[in-house]
Amino acid sequence: MNMPLILLYNLDNSKGAKIRRMCLPLGLRARLVKPEEYGLPLGELVEGAAPETPWEGEGFSDEMLVLVNCTGPLLDRFLQGFRRNKIPPVALKAVLTPTNRTWDSAALHAELLRERQAIQEGQAAHAGKEGI
């Protein structure tokens, strides 16, 4: 199944509704991921699997998007839609890859936080060197 899909985390609100409406004309299916599904591998979530037992690990409250089967032009139109529809950005975004499809939602969230922290630290390090 190669249909473009967006997994939405912690967006069961008006912002998430705007994102879902924005997806319709783009031909993107949007799926809200519930905290009890956080333990499923991302690949299984994409395939519509349901957890045998609810996730009991530590959840997260950050908004997060996982883009599945989104080509470059479609991805560009999706991201431009945020600006066009005046939707505030979602800080944590990932594309489903062969590597991360075996990760669960909590592992992906942790990795995205590590990446964001590394980028922020790198920017701070570079900012300090500008005066040299």
Rank of each mutant, 00 (worst) to 15 (best):
M1Y: 11
M3I: 07
P4C: 00
L5I: 02
L5A: 03
L7E: 06
L8I: 12
L8C: 15
Y9C: 05
Y9A: 05
Y9P: 05
L11Q: 03
L11T: 05
N13V: 03
N13E: 06
N13Q: 04
N13T: 03
S14I: 07
S14M: 03
S14C: 01
K15W: 11
A17I: 08
K18V: 00
K18H: 08
I19H: 01
I19T: 00
R20V: 06
R21F: 08
M22R: 04
C23F: 04
C23D: 07
P25I: 01
L26D: 05
G27D: 09
G27C: 10
R29W: 02
A30M: 06
R31S: 07
R31F: 02
L32A: 12
P35Q: 06
E36P: 03
E37C: 08
L40S: 12
L40V: 13
L40T: 13
P41T: 13
P41L: 12
L42R: 07
G43K: 07
L45H: 05
V46M: 10
A50H: 13
A50W: 11
A50S: 14
T53V: 15
P54G: 12
W55Q: 11
W55A: 14
W55P: 08
W55M: 12
W55E: 13
G57F: 05
G57N: 02
F60N: 09
S61G: 14
D62T: 12
D62N: 13
M64P: 05
M64D: 05
M64S: 05
V66C: 12
V66Y: 08
N69M: 01
N69I: 01
N69Q: 08
C70D: 11
C70T: 15
T71D: 13
P73Q: 06
L74F: 04
D76Q: 15
D76S: 14
D76P: 01
D76K: 15
R77C: 09
L79R: 15
L79H: 10
Q80W: 10
F82A: 01
R83F: 13
R84T: 10
N85E: 14
P89K: 00
P89M: 01
P89A: 03
A91G: 03
L92D: 03
L92M: 08
A94C: 07
V95K: 15
L96V: 09
L96P: 03
T97P: 05
T97M: 04
P98F: 07
N100W: 10
N100M: 10
W103T: 07
L108A: 05
L108R: 04
L108S: 05
L108H: 03
L108G: 04
A110L: 10
E111A: 14
E111I: 00
E111P: 02
L112Q: 07
L113R: 15
E115T: 08
E115A: 11
R116I: 00
A118C: 02
A118K: 11
I119G: 04
I119S: 11
I119H: 11
Q120L: 14
E121T: 01
E121H: 07
E121C: 02
G122E: 01
Q123I: 04
Q123H: 09
A125L: 11
A125T: 04
H126G: 10
H126A: 13
H126W: 08
A127L: 06
G128A: 04
G128V: 00
K129S: 00
E130C: 00
I132L: 01
I132C: 00
